[in-house]
Design a protein around this nucleic acid. Sequence first.
DNA 1: TGAGTCTTGCA
DNA 2: GCAAGACTC
Length: 490
Amino acid sequence: MNQRREDTVTGPPAAIVWFRRDLRLADNPALRAARDAGMRIVPVYIHAHEEETPWAPGGASRWWLHHSLAALDRDLRRHGSGLVIRRGPSLEALRRLARETGAGAVHWNRLYEPAAIARDGAIKQTLRQDGLDAHSHNAALLFEPWALQTQSGGPYRVFTPFWKACLGLGLAENAAPPPEALALMAAESESLNTLGLLPQRPWADAFADHWQPGERGAQDALATFLDRAAADYAAGRDLPSERATSRLSPHLHFGEIGPRQIAAAAQAHMARSTDRGTFSGLETFLRELGWREFAHHLLFHFPQTSERSLDARFEAFPWTRDHASRLEAWQRGRTGIPLVDAGMRELWHTGWMHNRVRMVVASFLTKNLLTPWQAGARWFWDTLLDADLANNTLGWQWTAGCGADAAPYFRVFNPVLQGRKFDPQGRYLRRWLPELARLPDKDLHAPWEASAQTLQHAGIRLGRDYPNPLVDLAVSRKQALAAYQSIKTA
DNA sequence: TGAGTCTTGCA
DNA sequence: GCAAGACTC
């Protein structure tokens, strides 16, 4: 039945643009489609996190979302009218808003998590039955997950051939300029503050020192990266003490910038650049964008993998039986392994962790502590500002060795060696572990190996000022290899 | 997007 | 005595 209300609204017809994780005005296909159709646009965000169960946004993500919505509202107001905020259920909110505004169309950009796919599909069908034009678009990916397949017709499971296929298609096609003018239409709105997205505790107060959520912040991060860091990216990206990575991940998660925009800007920079280092650095950087695409490709085609290992043999993996206390020490950055603890504290205080260190802490939790990767994924989900189901799932399964194109089971990172290799002067460790700062560089990465005299001189009593190591790295490594052997041959 | 161990080659 | 490469887990 057609529920469009009688035509009491004068002027051109209206279209709802349903913002979700595409919180930008530039390169936004849903917004562009509504605008190009000559519609007045009702921009809405619907608060309905329960619809994303069991992966409703974690605490850090909600902090970012609050500020990103505030930024989008400011940007929209410059075009005449702010963001409309409503509460879910999403379907009911869209229907009510359509009735109120007389809108005849609804546009949105697609999400790729299993829960969102199911919800959005049902909503699209129902809205069309209502007589509304409901359309979804691609703003979040370079390529739709179903647009790429292997020679034999299935999804890719190995990164390198996947990325070659992407490069063959061209990365930066179809990136659009920002809309010049938007005809916006106002509607009744909740206040952003009533959504309760900000944490009650003062935990997130320092996040604002490190981040600027919103489209402007995303563009600034990209420009800064291309101007200053790109030339050093190939070497600098592995050094956690340096600010050599793009730090675009939370912006990308919330769609404040799209991968096509990033690819286009990087390729333009490469074309202008005469410096070989910049060129290869940006090539490496684009490859990281490729891992993000690959993660979404995998989650789309293997939707159970956010919960279960892709490699079914891991159903029988002998994780340690009582991991609660080990998990807590890891979460709090009190394992007694400096690089692990530094990373976990960086995460807690800034909502982010350097990628090299993410691999080390994840390897330590799953291999040295034999704790299920899902426990680590949950903690990252709640504490990372860039928490993204596809990326998080791929990262943890890759490290645990149970996913697609995973690190071989025997690849166990040694936090001491990784620290000495990638943080040789201990700048990163001293920043996050001030209690160890007075140790000489040599002993910083393994204080339990320092002489009693050195420890005393640095004012450190192990077990009191800083924990003794939770496990022996060599012994636990051997145990992990044995555990992996047991399922490999089973 | 490892690490441990052994061998080789050179000093 | 040790750096670099091969091989294994």
